[in-house]
Amino acid sequence: MSDTLRARSTYTAVSHLDPTLLHQVVLMKNPDVQATNMDGETVLLDLSTGRYYTLNQAGSLIWELCTGKQTISDIHTALCNRFEVLPERALDDLVILANQLTQEGLLQQERR
């Protein structure tokens, strides 16, 4: 699960998500972001900045589920069902990635 995102830039992850609200927060893709799946990995291009990113398989599943319908908790459950991973580790990686993608402007977070 580590190295979920390979970006063409470096940044510091900032924890934006309140862990107590994960069942209320949904994630939505920025419509300016183009994505293509390549053998399980996803390459993203942010049309507003020209920057591109690659998500590994776990990151790709997370991206796929950022439809504005599933909560972070739902995505966490899907991750645990798909990959052999400790639930705590999956949640940590999910929250870190959601924050990174939000900070990069690729995702929006919304509280339901």
Binding site: R8, M38, D39, E41, T42, V43, L45, L47, G50, Y52
Partner: peptide
């Protein structure tokens, strides 16, 4: 891997 190939190719082609 194809994702890696696309990543390497993008700077050779695409400017937004």
């Amino acid at each position: 891997p194809k994702s890696r190939a696309l990543e390497i190719l993008l700077p050779q082609a695409l400017l937004v």
